[in-house]
């Protein structure tokens, strides 16, 4: 069994009101470390065995077509060890 992780983030130029809300909640709890926060999505795709390059290419395609919207988001695909 292996896990393929797809992380989707809003592009830097797209306003992230949720990230901003988190950033402004942190100092209220005494956490003063954050300059800013961006919030994204993480997909964990479980497959039977270590993925082949072909399978990874398919996941890349799915990330492009369905899991992310390339107009506003970027994605990263990686295999979790």
């Amino acid at each position: 069994m292996a896990t393929i992780v797809v992380e989707v983030m809003l592009k830097p130029e797209i306003l992230d009101p949720q990230g901003n809300a988190v950033a402004s909640a942190l100092p209220r709890l005494g956490f003063t470390f954050a300059q800013s926060v961006r919030q994204g999505k993480r997909f964990e795709i479980i497959i039977e065995a270590e993925p082949t390059p072909e399978q990874l290419a398919e996941v890349e395609k799915a990330a492009e077509v369905l899991l992310s919207n390339p107009v506003i988001e970027t994605y990263v695909v990686r295999v979790e060890k």
Partner: peptide, 16 residues
């Protein structure tokens, strides 16, 4: 927009 019949995207309202 998701269908690409129109450009752009609709995102979370700026004040949430």
């Amino acid at each position: 927009c998701e269908s690409h019949l129109l450009p752009g995207a609709l995102t979370r309202n700026s004040d949430l």
